[in-house]
Design a protein around this nucleic acid. Structure first.
Length: 414
DNA sequence: TCTGGGGTCCTAGGACCC
DNA sequence: TCTGGGGTCCTAGGACCC
């Protein structure tokens, strides 16, 4: 049986979804005017998470600073993202895709792969794809692109061709004509740095990579990456459509300040907030972590990070925060302005038996109780689930309610 | 008045053990 | 005393994705 994979990609997802809601409320359709979705429109540091076609025609791109976009189009309409609504839209879209094939891999909040090998046998895959695309438009009010190919890579490349509301195929026999003339940057996994490196050696198109001697490619990007790029440039990809949702391997949170900060008290407050968020999330998902990492970003975007092992797997905010504070002291002089601080945990286990040690800090029970109260206050919906696309939100304003003692401070020292 | 937030995977060097 | 390899873990940094 011939393998047939669809890649379904919502066109300008966050913008389309916002538009659907606004149209329902009787407002104008922001897809038809220059408009963008961003985090906090008043924050000069926020960036664009989605742009309408008219905005894109003015040169406005996803991930560029709002201030820069405003220079290109002073009358640009900026709307704020609505995460709960996006999740609803995503569920509706995934649901329709699933009705076409249960062999579905959700790739992000607005993209999925489905294996249609069985469902398409004896049918024209392009017709099936078109009916899927139209059903989503009719029932949900927004458009998608569907890429059709013999594997995930080619399906994904195909869905990226002309937008919006289109079906494209990319079969093996079409690779030379449709994919090889494209610039290297259009190939999956080729980002800015790799593009620069390839261009420096006169490798400009995907076809150039495909025809390249792998030895030469290895010298440029390393063996493993070279092999993958060479396979992909030739349209080969045997990765399966993964229906299982993979468990998280790490959790992290970070804060970029609206102004670079130097006051240790401000930095510590941010560190406290991100520690609460990360620890809360691992408790929610029943994890404990053995590695804590701490990172800071300077105003020139250089990042310094430090990690350490905990004496045993933990989910206690105070323990994680104290490790982070100690490491911060090692990587920050307390004076250099900081743009961002972040904290992450890895080496996760579901080990649930709490090792009662005779030497456990007697304050630990207090810390756990503090965490229980924090969790109770933060049981609401959480956007940080699965591997969904993330947007910035109100978490920068996360507070700890009326609990006045920070974990990690000596509770008896009040 | 330029650049968010949350992930995954890879690499390279050093420590340490056999 | 000097030398070798393999294996694993840890660490810092970097590239990419949405």
């Amino acid at each position: 049986m011939r393998r047939i994979i669809f890649h379904i990609d919502v066109n300008s997802a966050f913008l389309s979804w916002t538009a659907v809601k606004m149209v329902r409320e009787g407002k104008e359709d922001i897809r038809l005017i220059p408009s963008v979705v961003s985090g906090d429109p008043s924050d000069r540091r926020s960036i664009i998470t989605a742009a309408s076609l008219p905005a894109k025609k003015l040169g406005i791109k996803t991930a560029e600073p709002v201030s820069m976009a405003l220079r290109k189009c002073p009358s640009l309409l900026i709307v704020r993202g609505d995460w709960e609504w996006y999740k609803e839209c995503s569920e509706g879209f995934i649901g329709i895709c699933r009705s076409y094939s249960p062999v579905l891999q959700q790739f992000s909040i607005d993209e999925c792969f489905i294996d249609m090998s069985f469902r398409c046998s004896g049918k024209d895959p392009v017709e099936v794809a078109a009916s899927l695309k139209d059903e989503i438009k009719t029932k949900l009010g927004f458009t998608v692109n569907v890429g059709v190919g013999p594997n995930k890579l080619l399906a994904k490349m195909a869905s990226d061709f002309e937008k919006p509301d289109k079906v494209h195929t990319l079969w093996y026999e079409e690779v030379e004509e449709k994919m090889w003339p494209l610039g290297v940057r259009d190939l999956l996994w080729v980002g800015r740095k790799t593009e620069e490196r390839l261009l420096a050696y006169g490798i400009e198109t995907i076809g150039d990579i495909a025809r390249l001697d792998t030895g030469q490619l290895t010298r440029l990007v390393g063996q493993k990456f070279a092999q993958q790029l060479h396979e992909n440039a030739n349209g080969r990809d045997d990765s399966p459509v993964e229906t299982e949702i993979a468990e998280a391997k790490s959790y992290s949170a970070e804060r970029t300040f609206s102004k670079d900060l130097t006051d240790p008290k401000d930095i510590d407050r941010a560190l406290f907030n991100v520690a609460c968020i990360v620890a809360h999330r691992i408790r929610r998902d029943d994890f404990r972590a053995s590695t804590v990492s701490m990172f800071i970003k300077h105003k020139d975007f250089t990042v310094i990070q430090k990690q350490c092992q905990t004496s045993r797997p933990t989910n206690v905010t105070a323990v994680i925060l104290n490790e982070a504070r100690r490491m911060l002291g090692e990587i920050w002089d307390g004076k250099t302005p900081l743009r961002q601080v972040g904290l992450g945990v890895t080496k996760l286990t579901h080990e649930s038996a709490i090792q009662m040690s005779l030497f456990e800090d007697p304050a630990m029970e207090y810390y756990r109780e503090w965490d229980r109260q924090y969790d109770e206050k933060h049981t609401g919906p959480d956007r940080y689930r699965s591997n969904a696309k993330k947007i910035q939100g109100e978490d920068g304003k996360t507070t700890v309610g009326d609990i006045s003692v920070c974990p990690g401070q000596n509770p008896d020292g009040q």
